[in-house]
Computed example of a mutant assay.
Amino acid sequence: MATTNQDWSTPAAMAIPETGYFEYEQGRYGPVYPRTPANYGFSIVAKVKPGREAAIREHGRVIQAAVEQDPTVLASLRLHYLRWVLFDIGDGLTFQYQGIFDTDFDKYLEDALDLFLSTGITTAFVNLEGFPEDWRTDRAAAIEFFRTHQFPSFLEYGEYPYVTSDEIKKALRLKAAFSDMLDEMQ
Rank of each mutant, 00 (worst) to 15 (best):
R83A: 00
F22V: 07
K49W: 02
F151S: 13
A38G: 03
R28A: 12
A15E: 12
Y97M: 09
V62K: 11
A75V: 10
T4M: 11
M185C: 08
A75D: 02
G158L: 03
E156P: 00
V48H: 06
T122D: 05
A124D: 07
P161T: 01
V73L: 04
D138L: 14
Y81W: 10
R78A: 14
R35W: 06
T103S: 12
E110L: 09
S165C: 04
N39L: 08
L128D: 00
Q186R: 13
R35V: 13
F87N: 04
P71E: 10
L109Y: 09
A66S: 14
A38D: 07
Y157M: 07
T103W: 05
H149W: 10
F87Y: 08
D91M: 06
Y108P: 15
N39H: 04
Y160A: 12
I121E: 00
Y81S: 10
A75S: 07
V32D: 02
T72H: 10
T122E: 07
A12N: 01
A171E: 05
Y81A: 07
T94R: 00
Q6S: 14
M1C: 04
E53I: 04
T36H: 03
Y24Q: 02
T4V: 13
I16C: 15
F146W: 06
F146C: 15
V32L: 09
W135E: 15
M181S: 13
E23K: 02
V45A: 08
Y29A: 13
L182N: 11
H80D: 14
W135C: 10
F101T: 07
I44Y: 03
G99I: 05
L172T: 06
L79W: 01
M1P: 01
E53R: 04
D70V: 13
M181I: 00
N127P: 12
Q186E: 10
L172H: 07
G99Q: 06
Q186A: 04
K170H: 08
L93N: 08
L77M: 09
R57C: 12
Y29F: 11
N5I: 00
D88S: 05
M14T: 09
G92N: 12
R61Q: 14
Q6N: 10
Y162N: 12
R78Y: 03
Q98D: 13
L182I: 06
T19R: 14
F22G: 11
F105L: 14
F146H: 11
A2E: 05
D102N: 01
G92E: 10
W135V: 14
E23W: 01
A12L: 09
A171H: 00
V126T: 15
D183F: 03
V126E: 08
E144M: 08
A171Y: 05
D7I: 02
T36S: 09
G60Y: 08
P161G: 13
R28F: 01
S153A: 15
F146R: 15
F151N: 10
F145G: 11
A124N: 15
S153Q: 05
R83G: 04
G120H: 02
Q6V: 11
E25N: 13
K175I: 05
Q150G: 14
F116S: 15
L109C: 11
P34H: 00
D166S: 14
W135P: 07
